[in-house]
Simulated scan of single mutants.
Amino acid sequence: MLEYWIGKPGFTNLQRIGIGLLLSALGMAAAALAEKHRLANAKEIAQSTAMQPISVFLLIPQFLLVGCGEAFIYAGQLDFFITQSPKGMKTMSTALFLTTLSLGFFLSSLLVSVVKKVTGWVGDRIDNGRLDCFYGLLAILSFINFWLFLLCVKWYRSKTTRKDPPVESVDKGEDEC
């Protein structure tokens, strides 16, 4: 069935990255909805004496989507760097892959700090903050990232489809010394 849609078995590395980005964006949207539900439940509990606990299973969709998304992204990125880089740059491209991961974690921490100072969505007490808005912001940024990725993929030509200029072979005949 999969062969019918993409022409060959399995996904290409760029398709894996795209699927991963989409799953991660959907995971952030699921996190925003789960946090909105949790926050509404916390306000109900604060206003009444009746305890209405929510289940930890409410977190499964977001963790499943983000986890699967990361697996697709990491596998696709690593395969992309190894297959599309020149022969002498394969180890350097693997190091670049790991560098992008660490840079992403650093920027994530920076984003949390900026959002905390500017908006106050990330508070010291979970019920006083607006993590639903923060996760919504992350979902919007993730969808923008996905669409920018699709735009870049449209312009990209893989190593196997690039047309290098033909190299003229020199025919060594009797005329040459």
Rank of each mutant, 00 (worst) to 15 (best):
Y4K: 13
I6G: 12
I6P: 12
G7R: 02
K8F: 04
K8M: 01
K8R: 01
P9M: 07
T12W: 13
T12I: 04
L14C: 11
L14W: 12
R16S: 11
G18H: 05
I19N: 08
S24C: 03
A25Q: 12
L26R: 13
L26A: 06
M28G: 14
A29D: 01
A29F: 09
A30G: 02
A31K: 04
A32Q: 01
A32M: 02
E35A: 05
H37M: 14
R38K: 08
R38Y: 06
R38T: 09
R38P: 00
R38V: 06
L39T: 10
N41C: 12
A42V: 11
K43F: 02
E44L: 14
A46E: 09
A46P: 01
S48P: 02
A50P: 10
A50I: 14
M51V: 15
P53S: 02
P53V: 01
I54W: 15
L58I: 01
L59V: 04
P61M: 12
Q62E: 10
Q62N: 08
F63N: 11
L64G: 11
L64V: 08
G67Y: 11
E70W: 12
E70N: 15
F72T: 05
Y74R: 14
Y74H: 14
G76S: 11
G76V: 05
G76I: 13
Q77L: 15
D79G: 11
F81R: 12
P86G: 02
K87T: 10
G88L: 06
G88Q: 02
M89K: 03
M89P: 01
M89T: 03
K90L: 03
K90C: 12
T91E: 14
M92Q: 07
S93K: 08
S93M: 05
A95I: 01
L96W: 02
L96G: 05
F97R: 00
T99N: 09
T100W: 06
T100R: 12
L101W: 04
L101I: 13
L101K: 06
L103V: 09
G104N: 05
F106G: 02
L110Q: 08
L111P: 07
L111C: 13
V112I: 14
V112H: 01
V112N: 07
S113H: 02
V114D: 02
K117N: 11
K117H: 09
T119Y: 14
G120P: 11
G123A: 12
G123R: 02
D124R: 04
D124F: 04
N128W: 06
N128Y: 00
G136C: 00
L137C: 10
L137I: 08
L141C: 10
N145H: 09
F146L: 08
F149Y: 03
F149N: 00
L150H: 06
L151W: 03
K154R: 09
W155R: 09
Y156G: 00
R157I: 05
K159G: 09
T160M: 11
R162D: 14
K163D: 05
V167R: 13
S169C: 15
G173H: 08
G173P: 00
D175K: 13
C177N: 14
C177A: 15
C177F: 04
